[in-house]
Nucleic acid binder design. Structure first.
Length: 479
DNA sequence: TCTGCCACTTG
DNA sequence: TCAAGTGGCAG
């Protein structure tokens, strides 16, 4: 990549798990093998495997692009993981965020991505809460965890809780696992969590595809894009008819075809390349390939007091969350297919099965203030969480402050600072998932946040109120 | 660079 | 049949 070969690279790791038979990950129908470990506070032994890693690698080698639209666009490949090592009976919250990979703005010219300037200010970091959250370890581990419904948008005023990104900027999705068991002190500074990221899932956000190789990969692998597949004569004829043109016709895709450089744009690009993923809380795991590859310059983001975190939660839950391209894999078990089981009795009786993703947004995702019991309808509400207020207009205004420092707040708080800028000094690289001991950074205020204008009618988004009351926030249900 | 519309697909 | 998710493309 221009300007120093700014490719997607891997975060510096703290630890390497050599027990990572990557080959097992190459087969969609083969369970991924353990590759990571989170050590302290009950998070030890947690391993996360990226599903369809091989597909991700294909994109990564070309330079993954993700379309962002005003209405929100899903990611493809969709982000699915297999999680193991969770306490079957403990409750966990799984959430994702997408953080800037660096502070550059990119352009696609001469068949390659190059840096064209400094990145625009990061959007308010938003966290996407998996709609099943919170759920028991048994729930998370018995099936693939799909983040298919996560959507990316370039609408800075997005009211739907989608992840807000800037076009032509590079991003890195991350997965956070937060222990939500009350007995673990969830809602306190003792809350355990760990963060995982897969460097091959990094991407550049675009409003239209730049690299035609990416377009072709999407078309070839995304069932919804089947209509654009095919290149034989029949297909050409069909497309000609569609376009009302004489046959033969050059496929539009061919017309737009660009010669692309070989190798990955995002980091090494080597075949059989890097498949690292890290637990940012002090333990970073990689595949064996990674062991052989020098760590790159990009690392974990640092908390940024300037950032904001917003929280969204709705309890509408559709019956589909499987990746359309994964109809056949062994783990195909959409979260929506998994109705609350006996071990998930914590679901609110009237709301079970109708949950929807939750979005955190802003610079202060003070997860430490989010008790397991605060997750909307999904959980029993504490007296302090009595729904009281209707929605007010969504805003990106600054949050009300909370003096508390929080490790968990740093989870989402990491959301915006460029990953690459904090390699040498990010506290997260060695951060423990255990009890929060010493604030690594000043914690920006967390504030009461009202999310949705009633006119937008997000099914059941909730408003999170944090009043710095011993880590117990309040949720308000829209009326 | 972005938006809205289109034809097409899946479920 | 329909809603939602696809990339193409004109503007």
């Amino acid at each position: 990549m221009a300007n120093g070969g700014d490719r997607f690279s891997i975060p510096e790791r703290v630890d390497i798990d050599t027990d990572s038979p990557k080959e097992n990950l190459r087969e969609n129908h083969t369970p991924p093998s353990p590759q990571t470990t989170c050590t302290p506070q009950g998070m030890e032994g947690i391993k996360v495997y990226l599903h369809e890693q091989e597909l991700w690698e294909k994109f990564h080698e070309v330079g993954t692009e993700m379309i962002i639209t005003k209405a929100g666009r899903r990611m493809f490949p969709c982000y699915k993981v297999k999680v193991t090592g969770l306490n079957p009976k403990a409750k966990y919250i799984l959430l994702m965020d997408v953080v800037p990979a660096d502070d550059h703005r990119y352009k696609f010219a001469d068949n390659k991505w190059s840096v064209t300037g400094k990145a625009e200010p990061a959007m308010p970091g938003r966290l996407y809460l998996h709609p099943d959250s919170p759920a028991t370890g048994n729930h998370w581990t018995r099936q693939l965890v799909s983040f298919q419904k996560l959507k990316l948008t370039n609408n800075h005023l997005d009211p739907f809780g989608h992840i807000i990104l800037n076009s032509m900027h590079k991003y890195q999705p991350r997965l956070h696992i937060v222990k939500a068991d009350e007995h673990n002190g969830f809602g306190s500074k003792n809350t355990a969590f760990c963060t995982h990221l897969f460097s091959e899932t990094a991407f550049i956000a675009v409003t239209s595809y730049q690299n035609h190789k990416i377009t072709q990969l999407k078309i070839e692998n995304n069932p919804f894009a089947k209509g654009f597949r095919g290149s034989d004569d029949m297909e050409l004829h069909r497309m000609a008819k569609i376009q009302g043109k004489e046959y033969p016709v050059v496929p539009r895709s061919s017309v737009r075809q660009r010669v692309c450089p070989t190798g990955s744009l995002f980091g090494g690009g080597a075949r059989g390349g890097l498949h690292p993923y890290s637990c940012e809380n002090g333990v970073t795991s990689t595949t064996q390939d990674l062991v052989a590859s020098p760590p790159a310059h990009y690392s974990l983001p640092q908390p940024d007091p300037q950032e904001h975190v917003q929280v969204y939660h709705s309890n509408k839950r559709k019956a589909d969350d499987s990746c359309p391209a994964e109809e056949h894999h062994l783990y195909r078990k959409p979260y929506t297919d998994s109705s609350p089981s006996e071990d998930e009795s914590y679901y609110h009786p009237s709301e079970a099965g109708v949950r929807q993703p939750c979005m955190f947004a802003g610079s202060e995702p003070r997860l430490d203030e989010l008790s397991c019991t605060t997750w909307s309808y999904s959980c029993p509400l504490t007296p302090a969480m009595t729904p009281t207020e209707p929605y007010t207009t969504f805003s990106h205004q600054p949050y009300c402050s909370s003096p508390q420092n929080s490790q968990l707040s740093s989870i989402a708080h990491q959301g915006s600072p460029p990953l690459g800028d904090s390699l040498s000094h990010s506290p997260y690289q060695t951060q423990s998932s255990g009890p929060y001991q010493t604030p690594q950074h000043p914690s920006p205020p967390f504030r009461e946040y009202h999310r949705y204008p009633a006119s937008l009618s997000p099914p059941h988004y909730l408003t999170l109120h944090t009043h710095n009351r011993g880590g117990v926030p309040e949720w308000s249900e829209p009326t």
